[in-house]
């Protein structure tokens, strides 16, 4: 090999290692975070985490829209997915992927309770209005 080629390869190798390290280094905090939230116990400062404590999260529907925007709910596979929908309009709540439907009367509340057995990200919506009310994430 000519010297210039060698030098170029050396540069490339250095680049490869640098990017590799940077990627690993950059990811280590996130990995720690991921294990922290991915475990059974969750930090108390993630209010959107659904399996926190014993309180069942409630999605409040006012005028056919979720109060505070689309609710983010996150679980690990095998958890129990529990949440309630309190609505001021009569609607049908549809959890996609799991394909669960429940009617809620105007002013009433329905509760969902099912095992998190399908991994992925799913939307829950008010079927009649096509209004998304929750995004349910199930991590492996």
């Amino acid at each position: 090999m000519k010297n210039s080629t060698k030098a170029a390869f050396a540069c490339l190798a250095a680049l490869a290692i640098a990017v590799g390290l940077a990627a690993c280094g950059g990811s280590s905090d996130e990995t720690n975070e991921a294990t922290a939230t991915g475990g059974v116990t969750r930090p108390a400062d993630s209010p959107e985490s659904a399996s926190m404590g014993g309180k069942v999260p409630t999605i409040v529907i006012r005028n056919g829209e979720p109060v505070g925007g689309v609710k983010q709910l996150e679980y690990d596979a095998g958890d129990e997915i529990r949440f309630e929908v309190k609505s001021d309009v009569a609607e049908e709540v549809h959890v996609h992927g799991y394909d669960l439907m429940q009617d809620v009367p105007a002013g009433g509340t329905v509760s969902f309770d099912f095992p998190a057995e399908i991994e992925g990200i799913f939307e829950a919506e008010l079927e009649g209005r096509k209004e998304q009310i929750a995004e349910i994430t199930v991590n492996p």
Binding site: F9, L12, A13, L15, A16, V19, G20, A23, C24, G26, S27, E30, T31, A34, H96, G97, D99, I118, E119, G120, I121, F122, E123, T137, N139, P140
Partner: peptide, 29 residues
């Protein structure tokens, strides 16, 4: 879409990127 994919985790991202660089390097050499 009734189900969306979960984001690829950071560690797999790092491995993917590293493998790409190393394999590319050897493919050339």
């Amino acid at each position: 879409v009734a189900r969306q994919d979960l984001p690829v985790p950071a560690w797999l991202f790092a491995w993917g990127a590293s493998i790409v660089l190393i394999v590319s390097f050897f493919a050339l050499s």
